[in-house]
Design a protein around this nucleic acid. Structure first.
Ligand SMILES: NC(=O)c1ccc[n+]([C@@H]2O[C@H](COP(=O)([O-])OP(=O)(O)OC[C@H]3O[C@@H](n4cnc5c(N)ncnc54)[C@H](O)[C@@H]3O)[C@@H](O)[C@H]2O)c1
Ligand SMILES: NC(=O)c1ccc[n+]([C@@H]2O[C@H](COP(=O)([O-])OP(=O)(O)OC[C@H]3O[C@@H](n4cnc5c(N)ncnc54)[C@H](O)[C@@H]3O)[C@@H](O)[C@H]2O)c1
Lengths: 269, 269
DNA sequence: GCCACTTTGTGCCTGCGTTCACAAATGGCT
DNA sequence: AGCCATTTGTGAACGCAGGCACAAAGTGGC
């Protein structure tokens, strides 16, 4: 019996939206009451009503389930799965209920069936081709990482501005020049662009990706990108992550300032 | 006064809901919001009441402000700053109000003063030493990254299990063996541990970091880490980020499936 | 010194996300 | 066949966070 209960760890990235059109912004979560009519036999239609936060968790459940499937499990209860995913079991059930009633009461969920439904809901039945821009420290790591292709996100284009890098294969794929971003992305049907350039270059690179028809951008540069309304941006900002941790350290150090010490960085009187 | 409310770790508290709710008047939300209550004038004490989401934004404001300071700006209005940070101006003002009233009505905020207050609130006045474990693709990128030390997060220890890596300097720092994690972390007063190992090794590495007195962990491995209550974990999961983007692509493709096309990956009829 | 203008700080309302608790469904056991 | 243990699915409550709108507070012009 595991006494350990749910850890928190929130989502790491933040969505940004262009402040250009304050009137029509109407965040992705449909403004329409939408009522989520039960008649929705269409799983795709149902997708519209899934809360953003739940989508992030579904991805986590999916990975846990994949691990369980590899281990030979065929069914799993909400309690088990929620424990492995680090969330409350009620929340897990509610999340799963967004994609329909695919569990069996008294038994649990069929692992394979659940995997299929989550994949379909997250749009993982199609492949999403990825381009990485900025093949420096981080770009190299991303290009060499084997975990993406295996999950339906093949890296199919690399770009940089450095003449010494152009044509050099990284992770088996030659680097192209950023001038060619629009043409190459259009031609290869790239749908996700990853920005790993220095912050100063990020916006111009982003513009080229958009010109190439890319629909989503994953941004590692510490800047707020401006994009058209139809492009989705997610930001991964390590400096912010560290600063949030720093805040918690400070908060704890403050409330515990009476001798007892649980970690480094605190003076022991 | 510690007052550890607010966290969700609802440990044992069974809290059966009685309709009458005789326990306290905390049920009606209309009453005094209890936040910002007895928080004295002490800025550190006030930190406890800052919402998690606001902390993340404060870190973003801080970076924008630093850029403005470098550019010579001395004051900034909430409108300007919120634009640059990509948020609503009212939200920004509310976030800043958590750290006190340090703006001047009719003028705006003094950039330098604001930077100082945010830094103090986030605990950036002290340095937070960082250790990176798993010096592979990602670990190398992190170890070589110059952006962390400049912001008060010096990388002061590297660890791996690969004998070929031990002793090799990466980014000017030699790699140590993971066996030495507890000793080295304790000795060098490491407060933040970064896990960049394969997922299978992540939990054991995490345990060693905790044994070394590390207070926070930034986890890049796609697993849910189990840690004692006093350790804070944040997870950066690129696969999840991509899957969230994938969901949005699927959703958009679904709602727009009538010829008009705004990006790649959609068949044009 | 007064007035008009700017901008902050915040009370209030709305809506989302989380949690609880329980009825309904289901399988296994006697 | 009937009952019990188990587990799902969800209605309802609760609390946090976001956003509007306005009073308070300050600046600068005249
Ligand atoms: N390395 C890390 O661990 C890390 C951590 C956090 C954030 N980041 C951020 O990720 C980004 C990349 O970091 P990095 O360490 O890989 O930097 P890097 O300097 O190693 O690599 C940057 C790459 O971008 C290329 N580049 C420069 N200008 C370009 C342009 N206009 N168009 C296309 N490519 C261009 C450079 O040639 C170089 O190859 C930075 O914004 C950094 O702040 C990196
Ligand atoms: N590279 C990326 O772009 C990327 C992207 C997303 C997620 N990740 C995750 O980050 C982690 C690291 O990725 P990577 O690409 O750097 O992998 P990698 O294989 O290049 O590096 C892993 C490193 O960890 C070391 N290691 C193995 N077992 C260890 C142990 N028990 N203790 C300490 N070190 C050990 C290995 O020697 C190696 O140096 C993985 O969990 C991966 O899923 C990486």
């Amino acid at each position: 019996m595991v006494a350990q209960r749910g850890r928190r760890n929130g989502a790491a990235a933040k969505r940004t939206r262009t402040p250009a059109a304050p009137d029509a912004d109407n965040a992705p979560t449909a403004e329409m009451p939408a009522v989520a009519e039960a008649a929705g036999a269409d799983p795709e239609a149902r997708a519209k009503s899934i809360p953003e936060a739940a989508v992030a968790r579904l991805a986590v459940y999916l990975r846990v389930l994949s691990g369980m499937a590899d281990q030979g499990s065929t069914t799993v209860s909400s309690e088990e799965l929620s424990n492995a995913a680090g969330v409350n079991s009620a929340k897990l059930r509610k999340d799963l209920s967004y994609l329909g009633s695919y569990g069996t009461r008294g038994v649990g969920y069929d692992v394979a069936v659940l995997i299929g439904h989550i994949e379909r809901t997250l749009g993982l039945t199609r492949q999403h081709k990825v381009a990485v821009v900025g093949i420096g420290n981080l770009g190299h790591a991303l290009a060499n990482y084997g975990g993406f292709p295996g999950r339906g996100f093949p890296v199919e284009a690399l770009f940089d501005i450095d003449p010494d890098l152009i044509g050099v294969p990284v992770g088996g794929l030659p680097v192209s020049h950023i001038e060619d971003i629009p043409a190459v992305c259009t031609e290869r049907q790239i749908s996700i662009g990853v920005v790993a350039t220095p912050p100063t270059a990020a916006q111009s690179v982003c513009d080229r990706l958009v010109a190439g028809g890319v629909q989503c951008i994953l941004n590692f540069a510490p800047v707020v990108l401006q994009v058209p309304e139809h492009v989705e941006v997610r930001k991964v900002d390590l400096a912010v992550e560290l600063q949030i941790l720093s805040f918690h350290v400070a908060r704890r150090a403050d409330s515990e300032m009476n001798g007892s010490v649980t970690g480094n960085g605190v003076v022991v009187p």
